[in-house]
Amino acid sequence: MPGSAAVMPVIATDRAELAAVRDGMAGTLALVPTMGALHEGHRSLIRRARQLADSVAVSIFVNPLQFGPDEDFDRYPRTLAGDIEACEAEGVDVVFAPTREAMYPDAPQVTVHSGAMGGVVEGAARPGHFDGMLTVVLKLFNLVRPDVAVFGEKDAQQLALIGRMVADLDLPVEVVGGPTVREPDGLALSSRNRYLSAADRRTGLALWQALRAGADATADGPGAVLDAARAVLGEAADAEPPFELDYLVLVDPATFTEVAPAHAGPAVLAVAGRVGATHLIDNIALQFGTAKES
């Protein structure tokens, strides 16, 4: 049973400690990479990882490369003691919690380029974000040497890019997605939710409400999906505090390019924006039927 072990995980804070632990491990290893501030969404990924491998590692590192100059790197929540307690409760075997110096002994000169997919949607709203994310994920794969890595589906573009990197660079890691976990009111769990005031939270619920409205219109095609979602977000833009939209897109899940008006097959409806200073994202997977005649 998840959490039944109740054994303190081994804590590695540098490369040498991690290598010593990893070299002594038998069987398969699943990795759950995180930036800490663990919540039930992370814990669900840990439980999924436990199903997939003999041992589970969790990495906790707030990666500076994926934050823009005006983003929240300095104030991003850091709760290592509580995170380790959560890992212990879930029976995690190893926690890798490196310092910035341990992760980047020198300023990196060679990094991962996320390509065309990394420059659209969330990548267009946050230039350079996905290059930094893929760089640290590749480093974690090389240091931890997992057989399986588990990521949340809430960050759908991130998950798609990691899968693309693994395929393109022939990395010996299986990438698995875990379903988005939501609060009872529908708000997707995020470490950044702790920034939200009660009023911010009421406005932020518009993301999930917009996605649900779009999903309800799937039978009428992509245009109707976007129109229904836009209507909800338009009301949220007039709320107090207002929702400031970064993007609302309906995209191909393999490329994150926008789908055609007569699209048939899978798609992702993705939305992002800001409530006050807090950046929120969400998405929902949709399936469209036979393409309509033009």
Score class of each variant (00 low, 15 high):
residue 250 L to G: 07
residue 195 Y to N: 00
residue 176 V to A: 05
residue 211 L to A: 07
residue 217 A to G: 04
residue 264 A to W: 05
residue 265 G to V: 04
residue 259 V to L: 07
residue 207 L to N: 15
residue 240 E to Q: 12
residue 225 V to C: 14
residue 264 A to K: 05
residue 183 E to D: 10
residue 232 V to M: 10
residue 186 G to W: 04
residue 198 A to P: 12
residue 206 A to V: 14
residue 227 D to A: 15
residue 198 A to T: 09
residue 213 A to N: 11
residue 183 E to P: 01
residue 228 A to L: 05
residue 181 V to Q: 05
residue 254 A to L: 06
residue 263 H to S: 05
residue 240 E to V: 07
residue 205 L to T: 04
residue 200 D to T: 13
residue 199 A to T: 12
residue 253 P to E: 07
residue 190 S to L: 08
residue 204 G to Y: 01
residue 228 A to G: 04
residue 223 G to W: 14
residue 194 R to I: 12
residue 221 G to R: 03
residue 223 G to N: 15
residue 187 L to S: 04
residue 258 E to V: 10
residue 193 N to F: 00
residue 240 E to P: 02
residue 224 A to V: 03
residue 248 L to P: 15
residue 195 Y to F: 03
residue 215 A to G: 12
residue 188 A to K: 04
residue 200 D to W: 05
residue 184 P to E: 09
residue 261 P to C: 09
residue 262 A to H: 13
residue 199 A to E: 15
residue 189 L to T: 08
residue 186 G to P: 10
residue 236 A to D: 13
residue 239 A to C: 10
residue 218 T to P: 13
residue 264 A to S: 12
residue 225 V to Y: 00
residue 236 A to Y: 06
residue 208 W to F: 11
residue 261 P to E: 10
residue 234 G to N: 08
residue 210 A to I: 13
residue 213 A to R: 07
residue 261 P to V: 08
residue 255 T to S: 11
residue 244 E to V: 13
residue 202 R to L: 06
residue 242 P to A: 04
residue 233 L to D: 05
residue 197 S to A: 03
residue 211 L to I: 06
residue 267 A to K: 00
residue 189 L to S: 09
residue 188 A to V: 04
residue 247 Y to D: 15
residue 263 H to Y: 04
residue 194 R to G: 11
residue 218 T to G: 03
residue 218 T to R: 13
residue 258 E to D: 09
residue 205 L to Q: 11
residue 267 A to I: 00
residue 243 F to G: 00
residue 230 R to G: 09
residue 259 V to E: 10
residue 222 P to V: 11
residue 241 P to M: 02
residue 216 D to C: 15
residue 260 A to P: 02
residue 202 R to I: 02
residue 254 A to Y: 02
residue 202 R to N: 00
residue 216 D to I: 04
residue 211 L to T: 11
residue 242 P to L: 01
residue 226 L to H: 14
residue 225 V to L: 11
residue 186 G to M: 01
residue 219 A to S: 15
residue 243 F to M: 01
residue 233 L to K: 05
residue 266 P to F: 05
residue 220 D to C: 11
residue 247 Y to W: 13
residue 242 P to K: 00
residue 268 V to E: 14
residue 210 A to Q: 12
residue 177 G to C: 03
residue 181 V to P: 07
residue 252 D to Y: 06
residue 264 A to N: 10
residue 250 L to A: 03
residue 262 A to L: 07
residue 193 N to S: 07
residue 240 E to I: 02
residue 230 R to L: 14
residue 192 R to H: 03
residue 269 L to V: 05
residue 211 L to N: 03
residue 244 E to P: 09
residue 210 A to D: 06
residue 260 A to Y: 00
residue 199 A to P: 15
residue 244 E to A: 11
residue 267 A to Q: 02
residue 220 D to Q: 14
residue 244 E to T: 09
residue 250 L to P: 01
residue 213 A to T: 12
residue 192 R to D: 00
residue 270 A to R: 02
residue 201 R to E: 01
residue 183 E to Q: 06
residue 188 A to N: 08
residue 212 R to A: 08
residue 262 A to P: 02
residue 182 R to Y: 11
residue 209 Q to T: 10
residue 257 T to V: 14
residue 234 G to P: 07
residue 256 F to E: 09
residue 263 H to F: 03
residue 255 T to H: 08
residue 222 P to G: 15
residue 182 R to K: 14
